[in-house]
Design a protein around this nucleic acid. Structure first.
Lengths: 336, 336
DNA sequence: AACGTTTAGCTAAACGTTTAGATGAGAGTG
DNA sequence: CACTCTCATCTAAACGTTTAGCTAAACGTT
């Protein structure tokens, strides 16, 4: 592949002039400019981003760490981030850790070695997380996305999961259901914990005790939820309504109940959370809590780029953006 | 961020020794090695991949161009590729073009400027595609994934879409259906065209004329398929069976028929194609044609890395891998 | 003692850019 | 005409690595 030196030679100018034409950083006469452009095309020259970044110490690369693209919750977020990155001339480096600590570390090292200009991180929800510590030590501009450690100081774009829990639970309460189950991923996962907390708050406010035997944890997985509720249905002891911590689990729960001969929403009402693309297309369109996922990605990237461009990234105050959800009423809850 | 020079200073050795320790390329005495490691940790030194790649002219970066991660068909492929890449010490740079020519060009330029060691390309299905021409000109090791231009010479990993069409159609024929509709994306999209061709071959072999008024095109989109078939259902003139070019459209078709009061599979049998994750979890588990998507990603990356490592990439013969599908019989077709 | 051999560790030249500062041709001024 | 200014263009020094080739100490051989 041709280098700038060769282009300069062919155009009978200095490398500085070629550089000036490419970046149009300083004035170059039309004649030389023409010659340079000619030479670039002739040689199919393409600037070497490595050399460029090495000298200028900015790569126009952004890292994005998330747990699993296979989960339909994420691609939209990535898309939002990608769209603003592209517009601003950045490329995004997506890596998925599957919530595996070792993988996260490997990828993080790799991103830092590639000198990304900033990181979008969707895998950290503890202050003690090694990923977070490493990132702080490396002083990379940083935005936490979707998950975050309580009390974290720094740019953060997240969803108001407590509000989501309240919204879903209140909706079910308003439809007259009292015996409402909750299904989460686990108490360890912040988003799940907060959705549960919202559910508990709403129940408390309504003066209804939480039926603890109907609070279950299924790893945010369709399969696990299916198994859990199939088992539950077999006992005959089922709740009148379920708030599922995500749509995937809601699908699993509905499938389990259907397979056991229950009717949805007549026998059991189900409300999901996330409003993934498929939820509106499910045969029983799912009532669920909608989050602006694309928006979350977009805002995250904007914030990150702002942080990168801010003169001294150190003491610039950081933003905490919390996106509000809204309820999407469809068929699975038995409203209308 | 600390440089190798600073590490060398602190460890009282030369940069060459530091380099040797990091890459353990030549023998270094235990004593010096110890001092170097100490210094690296003390300074939190991290090799600069830019400088390293600039000198060694390999980046250990792979590009992956595909149309749209939001389509559940793709994430699994990416995962397969990522897994082998990680194992081989490569990072994958995913970019989505949304089948927009301009975006493809922008991203491609960006990847080439970043000097990726090779490219996985899932967006090219014409020999005249500018992307393909640019890639050939740049002489980057290359594997075409999923889509490919007829007659293309070079590494390719694809699905046998014709076999898929035959499989699906034969299954419906074997269940006694004769009036079988086909829904594709468009004749312009190779995968869709081939699935259609498979369908036509199977019909021909069975001696049944293709009902051309039941051959429709819906851009591989759930919505479009829904609208198209809702309209069709309203006319009262509906086929007894449908082979949908992908699962998403199958879902749309089923939803359309249900909303018009038809029963699936009793009134209309539906077979999809792709077997995306959700198809088995649909309330009417979808009969569909399964492809090994993860495998496709895995094989693609393996082939690419092989090509990168092959001594003279020019005349090394290229592989054409075509993955065979198999039918997954579930509920939507009315078998058993 | 003189020689060659081995080898741990070093020096310095790349890799392909960016960019501060040098150069020198023209134009403008008194 | 001598002077300064302006400004298009160039020269050369980085950026942080890798690596070919060198140095010199230590050892073995005769």
């Amino acid at each position: 592949m041709a280098t700038m030196r060769e282009v300069a030679q062919l155009a009978r100018v200095s490398v500085a002039t070629v550089s000036a034409v490419i970046n149009n950083s300083t004035f170059v006469s039309d004649e030389l400019k023409e010659r340079v452009i000619q030479a670039i095309q002739e040689l199919d020259y393409r600037p070497n981003a490595l050399a460029r970044s090495l000298k200028s110490s900015r790569t126009r690369l952004l890292g994005f760490m998330l747990s699993n693209i296979t989960n339909p919750f994420y691609p939209e977020i990535v898309l939002g981030a990608e769209d603003v990155a592209r517009k601003e001339g950045y490329n995004i480096f997506v890596c998925t850790t599957d919530d595996d600590e070792e993988r996260a570390q490997t990828y993080l090292d790799s991103m830092l070695e590639h000198r990304v200009d900033g990181m979008l991180v969707g895998t950290v929800d503890e202050l003690s997380d090694p990923t977070l510590r490493k990132l702080k030590a490396a002083q990379v501009p940083l935005v936490l996305v979707n998950r975050w450690p309580e009390g974290y100081k720094g740019n953060t774009v997240v969803l108001d999961n407590i509000a989501a829990g309240i919204l879903a639970t209140n909706h079910l309460l308003s439809l007259g259901y009292r015996e409402i189950a909750f299904v989460g991923a686990s108490r360890k996962i912040m988003t799940s914990r907060q959705r549960e907390d919202g559910y508990r708050q709403a129940m408390k406010l309504a003066g209804i005790p939480v039926p603890e035997h109907f609070v279950r944890y299924c790893d945010y997985s369709e399969e696990r939820a299916y198994e859990e509720f199939r088992r539950m249905a077999k006992t005959g002891r089922v709740p009148r309504a379920v708030f599922a911590g995500n749509d995937l689990m809601a699908f699993g729960i509905i499938r389990a109940f259907l397979d056991e001969g229950f009717k949805i929403p007549e026998d059991v009402a189900v409300v999901g959370c996330d409003d993934i693309a498929f939820s509106s297309k499910f045969f029983i369109p799912l009532t669920t809590v909608h989050f602006h996922k694309y928006e979350m990605g977009k805002l995250s990237a904007e914030l990150l780029i702002k942080a990168i461009n801010s003169p001294d990234s150190e003491d610039s105050q950081s933003d905490f953006i919390q996106l509000k959800p809204h309820l999407v009423v469809r068929k699975s809850c038995g409203a209308n």
